[in-house]
């Protein structure tokens, strides 16, 4: 299986004192659905931010899609976020001023695709997440689950290699949570998009292909 994420001796320390990540080594294959487990403060989010090019490791190497990430090259990091990574955040984080459709299109604005192609793609993805009829609703008019579905559609709009989801079900009740989780699994199976799901819920972890557990910044299993 093609390796799509690989970290080699990744360390992250804040102010040379607080160690967030210590010698993290792991690999994720193409199309895998992996849960990154760990208590709060174990370094999960830091790792996710590094993989998404939002944060830089203190030392070590990160390879995304077979290429080493150069954390000193800001333009390359922006290109990585535009082309290879889709983010889903805990608190939905849609842009309140934009409709569902516009929120999904938003990342493509920075990819400079033409408007018609953008609208078509966003509409397709909204149908995929089951919200075709909510395209012109604003985030405040939608439930938490619906907002998170829009956020998933937004993460997928750039056709990324990897979707990085940081506690995507953290703010949802259990039934909605299952729906969102199943949606992500479905996308994973149908499109072979790699998912890395940060969660502190072991129960969710058991329903993924594989779990990586972090404890105090190190991979323990």
């Amino acid at each position: 299986m093609e390796t799509i994420i690989e970290t080699i001796h990744v360390n992250k320390a804040y102010n040379d004192q607080v160690t967030a990540l210590a010698d993290v080594n792991f690999a994720v294959g193409k199309g895998e659905f992996v849960a990154l487990l760990g208590r709060s403060g174990s370094g999960k989010s830091t790792l996710l931010n590094i993989l998404g090019g939002l944060d830089a490791p203190t030392s070590g190497e990160v390879h995304i899609g077979g290429r080493r990430v150069d954390f000193s090259d800001r333009k390359a990091l922006i290109a990585l976020r535009r082309g290879s990574i889709g983010f889903v955040f805990q608190s939905f984080n849609l842009i309140p001023a934009l409709t569902a459709q516009e929120n999904v299109e938003y990342p493509l604005l920075f990819n400079y695709r033409d408007r018609a192609a953008r609208a078509k793609r966003a509409a397709d993805l909204l149908s995929l997440v089951g919200l075709a009829d909510r395209a012109h609703h604003y985030p405040r008019e939608m439930s938490g689950g619906e907002q998170q579905r829009v956020a998933i559609a937004r993460a997928l709009v750039g056709d990324p290699l990897i979707v990085l989801a940081d506690e995507p079900t953290g703010n949802l009740d259990s039934r909605t949570r299952d729906g969102i989780f199943e949606l992500m699994r479905q996308v994973n199976r149908e499109r072979e998009t790699t998912f890395l799901l940060v969660t502190h819920e072991r129960e969710l972890g058991r329903r993924t292909d594989r779990t990586i557990e972090l404890l105090d910044g190190s991979v323990v299993s």
Binding site: G52, R81, R82, F87, N93, I95, Y106, F110, R154
Partner: peptide, 16 residues
Amino acid sequence: TREIGITMAIGASPGD
């Protein structure tokens, strides 16, 4: 602040 952070995470450059 948060919205701008998200915008940058989903691919906006500082110039954008």
